[in-house]
Design a protein around this nucleic acid. Structure first.
Length: 604
DNA sequence: TAGATGTTGCGAGG
DNA sequence: CCTCGCAACATCTA
């Protein structure tokens, strides 16, 4: 007698698609008698990391699109969304639904994701459920890259490509299935374990009734529906991004790009304008790669095909489109080799220690300088008084995406090229606001731009005036995202504080110190620059030079035990005198000057 | 171990 | 469009 046909859960996580989904493919290869496509609404993601409403909306759109795609393949199918942590839920489902196999895409996360997966694999074994994992998030498996790189983190594209070459071409993308088996019995005859409500870092985004997504295991209608923003307690108006999620949109967008082989074949990242919008100068596919609404191998494959169609000069790595994907893989692989410390300074062997302002503590960060804290808050809200920087930061807040070079400008400005604030502060803001936030890439790029890893030429500093002008001398980008400056002439649009008062009035927006306040009058104001850039550039360069000379990394004992700043750096560039008052009080004082400005800056 | 190279600086000068 | 000086880092190749 042959064994009964498998009853399979395909657990979707960051692979919200049916095209080239290795996990779905592996699940179907088991020839299951029944298949349960499942999403677990994990309270860890929902409640312990700050996430802006834009990203929730994008995720829900991806889930709805995947659910619809599954239903098209079999009207009895959908994405079964369950509101409980996978570690407690999956074991209960194994029993309730008589599951024989659990299939999922392996997480590249080295901390929470790895621990959670290990726990689930263990529980599956105990339940007699076979676990099948697939790798699909990157072109090459970070495990394989790390092995080929001799166990060392890939700290340059050269090192990464050398390792990748030994592994051969990435796997070819798989076609979407043409049919799906039915799901089996959907009875949920067990206790629902909603999360405790004491931690919810995203509470400020929610309406009065808070997060309702855990009230019922299978959703308010008991039909396993994809949650709505309303269910999460997030007002629809809070999600302001024009960028939409979902595999359908991702594939349409990819097809449109591919239809222009010249664009694809000659793409050179450094030549694309960070000031372009509607349309952007790059592909804008990164949010889809993050949520898995587009397979990175599918992207590469289509790019290679389109490139082959183009006759004439072609670009090559690192600047061409495949090069961009290689950088992404490089960061994933480096993160894998370093482990959880890759995302921070503490204990990180590859990151250079620099006595930045606002260094991290166990629970937050130290306000070592009120001035620097004010700079950080103003940066985060697009009120630095440097229009190009402010335009970028407002675009980020409103839309959840900015061009890669714009991220360079913003990151350099906050860290080594202006405010000398710790890169972890900036990374946290990006992590909350970016639709495409990918922990490995975010940390990697912040280390790159702060010249603490991957890149070291700290004397190349981006100018908030010159850099944008190179692509956009008319300041079209600034006029779009800093609308109060729209009437300024080209001459002053990058430096409105230098315009004569008369011209400022004529342009309908007067520049004045942020401390003087932005309201209490019918007039429109734009803040004066928060510091003298040329002066700050020199201070930062001197600080970097000193820190490079000291040459200590995040895993140094003195960094780990907290003595590095005082022991290794003089007052001038490091051991900043600690001011009195609790960190909370100081933060409040430093941020209070934004009253009246923060409302005004909102873009529509 | 020297010399070239490294995704994406700026400003002056040609 | 190009090159150079600026003051100068880490990594890779030969």
């Amino acid at each position: 007698m042959s064994p009964p046909a498998p009853r399979v859960i395909c657990w979707f996580r960051t692979d919200l698609r049916v095209h080239d989904s290795p996990a779905l493919h592996a699940a179907l290869a088991l020839a299951p008698a029944c298949l349960y496509p499942v999403w677990c609404w994990d309270p860890h993601y929902v409640r312990t990391a700050p996430v802006a409403p834009n990203r929730w909306r994008f995720l829900l759109e991806c889930q709805r699109d995947l659910s619809a795609a599954l239903t098209r393949l079999n009207p009895a199918q959908r994405l079964f969304v369950l509101r409980e942590a996978p570690t407690t839920l999956l074991p209960k489902l194994f029993a309730a639904w008589n599951i024989t196999h659990l299939v999922f895409e392996r997480d590249t996360d080295t901390s929470y994701g790895a621990l959670r997966d290990a726990e689930i694999v263990e529980k599956a074994r105990n339940a007699g459920v076979q676990v099948v994992t697939a790798a699909g998030r990157t072109l090459w498996d970070p495990v394989d890259i790390t092995r080929e790189a001799g166990g060392k983190p890939t700290m340059s594209l050269t090192a990464f490509m050398k390792a990748a070459k030994k592994l051969g071409d990435p796997a070819k993308p798989l076609d979407a299935p043409t049919s799906l088996p039915d799901p089996g019995d959907l009875t949920l005859s067990f206790e629902h374990a909603p999360p405790s409500s004491d931690t919810d870092i995203n509470a400020p985004h929610r309406r009065g009734h808070g997060d309702q997504s855990y009230v019922a295991l299978a959703g308010p209608g008991g039909d396993f529906s994809v949650p709505t923003l309303e269910e999460l307690g997030i007002p629809a108006s809070a999600a302001t991004t024009p960028h939409q999620g979902g595999e359908t949109i991702a594939l349409q967008h990819l097809a449109k790009l591919i239809a222009d082989p010249k664009y694809i074949a000659t793409f050179e990242k450094p030549k694309t304008a960070p000031t372009a919008f509607e349309p952007a100068s790059t592909t804008l596919l990164s949010p889809h790669l993050h949520f898995g609404s587009l397979s990175v191998r599918r992207f590469l494959h289509d790019v290679q095909n389109a490139t082959a169609k183009h006759t004439g000069k072609k670009s090559s790595p690192p600047t061409n489109l495949p090069g961009q994907l290689y950088f992404r893989d490089m960061y994933f692989a480096a993160q894998h080799a370093v482990g959880p410390a890759f995302g921070c300074e503490l204990g990180n062997p590859v990151v250079r220690y620099i006595p930045w302002h606002l260094p991290s503590t166990d629970t937050g960060y130290t306000v070592d300088s009120l001035e620097a804290h004010a700079w950080f808050v103003r940066w985060a809200w697009g009120l630095t008084g440097f229009p190009f920087v402010d335009a970028l930061m407002r675009q980020l807040r409103a839309e959840g995406w900015i061009h890669h070079l714009g991220r360079h400008m913003a990151a350099c400005f906050l860290t080594r090229g202006g405010a000398y604030v710790h890169w972890e502060r900036g990374a946290a803001v990006f992590a909350e606001l970016l639709l495409d936030h990918e922990p490995a890439c975010n940390a990697g790029n912040w280390m790159w731009l702060s010249c603490t890893a991957f890149f070291a030429q700290y004397y190349r500093v981006y100018s908030p005036v010159a850099f944008g002008k190179k692509w956009d001398p008319e300041g079209t980008f600034i006029r779009r995202y800093v609308p109060e400056l729209a009437e300024y002439s080209n001459k002053w649009i990058y430096e409105p504080h230098r315009a004569p008062r008369e011209e400022q009035r004529k342009a309908g927006c007067v520049v004045r110190a942020l401390e003087e306040g932005g309201k209490n009058s019918g007039d429109v104001y734009y803040p004066a620059p928060m510091f003298d850039f040329a002066e700050r550039r020199e201070v930062c360069l001197a600080g970097m030079k000193e820190a490079y000379k000291v040459g200590v990394h995040g895993d140094d004992a003195r960094v780990v035990n907290g003595t590095a700043r005082d022991a290794l750096f003089g007052n001038e560039h490091g051991a900043a005198s600690v001011e009195t008052g609790t960190a909370g009080e100081k933060r409040k004082r430093a941020g209070s000057t934004l009253d009246g400005w923060v409302q005004k800056k909102t873009c529509t």
